[in-house]
C-alpha cells in the first residue's frame, strides 16, 4: 500500500493500552508514510502522550504492535527522536554537548558528529551559543536545542509532543515555520502531536483526529495546501472548520 507512491514507514496494528483498569488506547490502527508530516490532534488527557510512549517502547503495549520498516519498533535499532512535552535539555551539558548526546549514544564517528553538529546548529541558529548552558538560554532557544538534538541523529522517525504549547504565539509561529523548513530540508518522517487545530492544519500533510479517552481514530483529514500556508486562505479556513466540526466536544 502506498500514499502518493510513498512507502509505509510505520504500521500501527490494533494497538491497545491499559493502565490497570484504565483503558487509554482502544484498538488503534493506522500507517505513517515515509517522509510524511502527520499531526495527531485530540483533547487533553485522551492518550496522545501515552501513544508516543508506547510507540517508543517506554511503556509496553497491552495488545497490538508497532512496526517501523516492517520490524517491531525498537529504540536501540531504529533511529527515533522524541521531543517531549516538558523541557528536556540536560542542564549539566552545553548546547553543543546536549546536541551531541544522541549522536554519541548511537556511536556515530567523531568526524560525522562534527559535520552534523555544524549542520543542525546552523539550521536552528545556535552556532554562536554552542558553549552556553541551558540555564543561560531563553525558553525558545532551549526548545531549539531540543529540536536540533532530535534532528541531529537523522531520525527515521521524529516524534514531537506538543512541543510549542508552552511558548508564546510569536515564537510558536516562528518555530512552526522552522520545523517545516528543517523537515523539508532533511526529509524525515514526523509525528506531531498537538491540541491546537490551527497549528495542525498549518503543519500537517495529514491529520488524525482522536476521540476522548479511550482514544480511537475518529477521522483522518488530508491537508493538501501549498506552503507556506496562509491562515486567512479560504481553503485553510475551510479545513480548519472541518476539523473543529469533528471535535465539537472540546
Amino acid at each position: 500500500m502506498t500514499n502518493n507512491g510513498r512507502k509505509i514507514k510505520i504500521q500501527v496494528q490494533n494497538l491497545t493500552k491499559r493502565f490497570g483498569d484504565l483503558l487509554v488506547l482502544n484498538n488503534i490502527s493506522f500507517n505513517v508514510y515515509e517522509g510524511e508530516f502527520l499531526c495527531i490532534v485530540g483533547p487533553t488527557g485522551c492518550g496522545k502522550t501515552t501513544f508516543l510512549n508506547v510507540l517508543t517502547k517506554l511503556h509496553p503495549a497491552t495488545e497490538g504492535d508497532i512496526y517501523i520498516d516492517g520490524e517491531p519498533a525498537n529504540p536501540q535499532k531504529h533511529n527515533i527522536s522524541f521531543v517531549f512535552q516538558e523541557p528536556s535539555t540536560m542542564p549539566w551539558l552545553t548546547v553543543e554537548q546536549n546536541i551531541r548526546y544522541g549522536l554519541e549514544v548511537k556511536k556515530v564517528p567523531e568526524e560525522e558528529i562534527k559535520k552534523r553538529l555544524n549542520q543542525v546548529m546552523e539550521l536552528v541558529g545556535l552556532k554562536d551559543f554552542r558553549n552556553y548552558y541551558p540555564r543561560q538560554l531563553s525558553a525558545s532557544m532551549d526548545q531549539r536545542v531540543v529540536i536540533a538534538r532530535a534532528f541531529a541523529i537523522n531520525p527515521d522517525l521524529l516524534l514531537m509532543d506538543e512541543p510549542y504549547s508552552q511558548l508564546d504565539i510569536k515564537l510558536r509561529y516562528y518555530l512552526e515555520d522552522e520545523v517545516i523548513r528543517i523537515w523539508r530540508e532533511m526529509k524525515r518522517t514526523v509525528i506531531f502531536v498537538t491540541h491546537n487545530i490551527e497549528e495542525a492544519v498549518y503543519l500537517a500533510e495529514r491529520i488524525l483526529i482522536l476521540t476522548p479517552k479511550p482514544a480511537t481514530i475518529k477521522k483522518e483529514i488530508k491537508v493538501d495546501l501549498p506552503r507556506p500556508r496562509n491562515f486567512a486562505d479560504p481553503e485553510f479556513v475551510n479545513i480548519r472548520n472541518q476539523v473543529t466540526e469533528m471535535i465539537k466536544w472540546w
Binding site: 517508543t56 517506554l58 529504540p75 522524541f82 517531549f84 516538558e86 528536556s88 549539566w92 551539558l93 548511537k106
Partner: peptide, 29 residues
C-alpha cells in the same frame, strides 16, 4: 533524576547503564 531525561536517553537507544552514567550520575551530582 528528571524522568523526561531518562526517557530521552532511552529513546535515543541508550542502555540502562549508559543512562545511569550519563544522565543519572550528573543529575545527582
Amino acid at each position: 533524576t528528571e524522568p523526561v531525561l531518562i526517557n530521552m536517553s532511552r529513546t535515543f537507544g541508550a542502555t540502562n547503564w549508559e543512562t545511569f552514567l550519563r544522565v543519572g550520575v550528573p543529575s545527582a551530582l
